[in-house]
Amino acid sequence: MEGEKAVLELIHSNIQIEFVVTSDEFATQYLSEFKHTELYIEDESLLHKLSTLVSNSFGFAVVSMQQFNFQLTYKNDITVVLDGIRDPGNLGTIIRICDWYGIKQIALSKDCTDFFNPKVIAASMGSFSRIQFEYINLEELFKANNNVPVYGALLNGEDIHAIQFPESCFLLFGNESNGIRQENIEFINQKVTIPRYGSAESLNVGISTAIFLDNLRRN
């Protein structure tokens, strides 16, 4: 975990921190937060060299990889479902957005980018530790839970502002370039569109997820 905000998020999570590498300035500033953490103090120039971020004067934390063996239940919850999301920045942003809106679980098609890709972890800003997830064949997921309605983000659906979302459903979002695959569109019970008032060609999938979840919570 790299950067000031991301590392400080870890202090309040259940993730085991092995050690933190930071500068003398930040070690002093956050002395109370790091009182139970093994610290290594290095020059900022070295921290910049070791980091994958464009700018990182704070440093990073090395943490233990958790074993995630969730048994997700879909019948009584809101589940964000991702179909072929390849961009790690988008996935990390979606994880963070789900955490903001209190969505606890994400189902991912098996060709989605790795949940633990460093760019996903960085973009999630610590929210990855609070989201349960599962990589699964989406066709099998929808067939096994055919009593849970599927709301799909498409360009030819009903205006999202007129939708009354139920307390339990799948919210399906497609690939950044190609959208939801045809074989998964067949399982959608309600096609939903974010109305366009300007001239932009499309919306980023992370932004679309935020708009869906905001409207869902307004209900």
Rank of each mutant, 00 (worst) to 15 (best):
H48E: 07
V192C: 08
N14I: 04
T22N: 10
S32D: 13
L10M: 03
E183G: 00
Y101F: 15
K119Y: 07
S32W: 00
R217H: 09
M1L: 15
D159R: 13
T113Y: 05
Q132H: 11
Q182F: 01
F128Y: 15
I11K: 07
S177N: 11
F212P: 08
E4D: 00
H48S: 07
E183F: 10
N56A: 05
E183K: 14
F170D: 01
P88V: 00
F68N: 14
E4K: 14
V54S: 03
Q132N: 11
G59C: 10
S109T: 13
F26M: 01
V150K: 11
A144H: 14
E4Q: 12
L53Q: 07
F170R: 13
E183A: 04
T37C: 08
D43V: 00
V62E: 06
R130I: 06
L47P: 03
T93F: 02
F115M: 14
E183T: 11
A123Q: 09
F173N: 00
N189H: 13
N69S: 09
M1F: 11
N215I: 05
S45N: 10
L39Y: 13
V80C: 00
T193M: 10
V80G: 12
G179H: 05
E44I: 13
K35P: 01
R96G: 03
D43H: 13
N137T: 12
Q16T: 11
A6Q: 05
N156E: 14
F58N: 07
C169T: 03
Q71R: 06
H161K: 14
L31T: 10
L108Q: 08
G3T: 11
E140V: 09
K119A: 06
N117R: 12
F34D: 05
T79Y: 00
V80N: 13
C98L: 09
G206T: 04
F26N: 09
N189R: 10
S199L: 13
S13I: 01
L47R: 01
S55R: 12
P149K: 08
S13P: 07
A61H: 01
E167K: 14
N14W: 02
P149G: 14
S208V: 06
N117Q: 04
S199R: 12
F19A: 01
G89T: 12
L39S: 05
F173G: 03
I78K: 09
N145H: 03
V54L: 14
D214H: 12
V7E: 01
V63T: 15
N14P: 06
F116I: 10
A123L: 00
F187L: 13
I160G: 04
E139D: 08
L91N: 07
S168L: 05
E18I: 15
F19L: 12
S168M: 02
I85W: 06
Q190W: 03
Y40G: 00
Q67M: 06
E140C: 02
F26R: 03
E25V: 15
S109R: 12
T193Y: 01
G59F: 05
F165Q: 07
S127V: 00
N219T: 15
V20I: 15
T52I: 07
F133S: 08
Q29A: 08
A200T: 04
F60W: 12
R218T: 05
F133M: 11
R130W: 03
S109W: 02
I78H: 08
G3L: 01
